[in-house]
Design a protein around this nucleic acid. Structure first.
Length: 465
RNA sequence: GGCGCCGUACCCAAGUGGUAAGGGAGAGGUCUGCAAAACCUUUAUGCAUCGGUUCGAAUCCGAUCGGCGCCUCCA
């Protein structure tokens, strides 16, 4: 049984979809004013693990994600660049999809830019005005928080006291109460994009896009709504206020939040010089799979301290998996099925499922994988692993890949290559003749081709570096 | 100031009352013509500190110290 920590209650709760077999999930997507950084990507990887596991449970998943393509930052940057927002955001949107693909993050079923939902947002704002939850002030429309008594439930606002001065109203707009938030913003700049609405020309506030898109695509009550912890307040709190004021129904049954990533123990910030995008790391020669592995290795509710040392360790861990698969795929086995090995596999299989069911405990899930690898290696060395064991283990690794997305591909490593084959044959000929100088020359030659060879009992194996 | 999370070996990290998973690194070994790689073995009488509850605590309670986050830009 899958259990997830629900921010709404603060408890670990059993999860299943509300009606039928379909899980309706919404995740807050990126704001495309720049390339995504690894902190952003950590959250998307966590959501990816969640979606992979939900599907692994046999449920049908309908997963919706927005792309925020209109907000203050984007407008300012687009104006600076002399472009409209579509033109400005297009390359960053593309880059985001590319980064996700590079990190094996599966694409949500529906992913659309906020500006595709303007009519739905206008409709929501109109209904909020009609029911008294929203009011005009100046040329803009605000949400009246005093009308929504349960405001603050998600972030436990009722228990908070505000730091003196922390809530100084820096917004240039006037409002009835400082904590009221904007639903519809009047244009401030000539070149600012704007839409006509019954309540005035303007553009949507940030929070309304998620309410509009989520309810349009998934209905009035979602099964799961995800995001980073920083979105609990105010973003998700405001989404709840807007949506529930309109529908009178709970907006989401489960709120699930991913903790932040730190870099070298500090919050990542451009000013600190510890700000990395995926491209930055790839440019430094890191394998994207190692980056994903690192992001997966720490469960989502714990802050993840990103370090290059950690990234190197992730790469080494991945090598261990790769070596094991290489051994399985490149060796010959006697027919049959060793029940002892099958039992080990059964244990690993159960451990993986149980770990993910337990609030997506990815650290435990990886331990299950390595547990099998250790036993598998011992069996391989003792020649106790048989043909059917090999195939059932390889099949399980496909499941591991489906759930975690961290299994290295080995096919490319064992492909047939005539040139390499011929060099290896020549080297073995030299070794048989005890001409080790020549053998070592050929080994170097292969190394120059990025080919690593290993002399084993079963002959010389090779793989690409 | 308020709210919340966290502190487990050299590093990362699991573990929510029954006697410390897993990975990396280090050390030793096996294999090898030599290497390299790989594989195996090994590494915390102790889980920030102090006190308490209990037959029993990393796990529960209290206090202290330290780190991080949020309190309308933020994944």
């Amino acid at each position: 049984m899958l259990k997830l920590t629900n921010t709404l209650t603060g408890n670990l709760e059993p999860f299943s979809p509300d009606n039928g077999n379909t899980v309706r999930m919404y995740t807050c997507g990126p704001t495309v004013y720049d390339f995504a950084h690894i902190g952003n990507l950590r959250t998307f990887v966590f959501e990816d693990i969640l979606r992979r596991h939900l599907r692994g449970k046999g449920w049908t998943l309908k997963h919706v994600m927005n792309i925020t393509d209109i907000d203050d930052k984007i407008i300012n940057k687009a104006i600076e660049a002399g472009q409209d927002i579509k033109t400005y955001t297009a390359p960053y949107t593309e880059a985001f999809f590319k980064d996700c693909e590079t990190l094996r993050i599966e694409r949500p079923d529906i992913v659309t830019p906020a500006t595709d939902y303007i009519p739905e947002m206008i409709d929501l704002v109109g209904r909020l005005i009609q029911s008294g939850y929203a009011y005009p002030e100046g040329e803009s429309i605000y949400y009246r928080i005093s009308r929504f008594p349960s405001y603050g439930r998600l972030s436990r606002l009722e228990k908070r006291e505000l730091k003196l001065g922390a809530r100084i109203d820096v917004d240039e707009y006037e409002k009835e109460e400082p904590r009221d938030f904007v639903l519809w913003k009047a244009p401030k700049h000539e070149k600012e994009p704007r839409w006509e609405a019954p309540f005035g020309t303007g553009r949507p506030g940030w929070h309304i896009e998620c309410s509009a898109m989520a309810m349009k695509q998934l209905g009035e009550t979602l099964d799961i709504h995800c995001g980073g912890v920083d979105n609990i307040f105010p973003h998700h709190e405001n989404e709840i206020a807007q949506s529930e004021a309109v529908t009178g129904k709970p907006f989401a049954r489960f709120w699930i939040h991913g903790e932040h990533l730190l870099v070298e123990g500090e919050k990542m910030a451009k000013s600190k010089g510890n700000f990395y995008t995926l491209r930055d790391l790839i440019d430094r020669g890191y394998d994207p799979l190692a980056i994903r592995y690192l992001l997966v290795s720490v469960p989502y509710r714990k802050q993840l301290n990103f370090t290059f040392e950690g990234l190197d360790a992730a790469r080494s861990s991945l090598d261990r998996i790769k070596e094991f698969l290489f051994r399985l795929k490149s060796s010959k086995f006697k027919p049959g099925r060793n029940p002892a090995i099958s039992a080990v596999l059964t244990t690993a299989r159960k451990q993986l499922d149980a770990a993910l069911d337990d609030d997506l405990n990815t650290a435990q899930a990886l331990a299950a994988v390595f547990g099998l690898i250790k036993e598998g290696n011992i069996a391989l060395t003792e020649d106790a692993l048989e043909e059917e064991n090999r195939s059932e283990i390889l099949q399980w690794f496909e499941v591991v890949e489906q759930r975690l997305g961290i299994v290295p591909t080995v096919e490319a490593l064992v492909q047939v290559d005539e040139k390499v084959g011929s060099l290896i044959a020549q080297r073995n000929e030299a070794r048989r003749n005890r001409d080790f100088a020549k053998a070592d020359r050929i080994r170097q030659e292969l190394l120059d081709l990025d080919v690593i060879i290993e002399d084993t009992r079963e002959g010389t194996k090779w793989r690409r570096k």
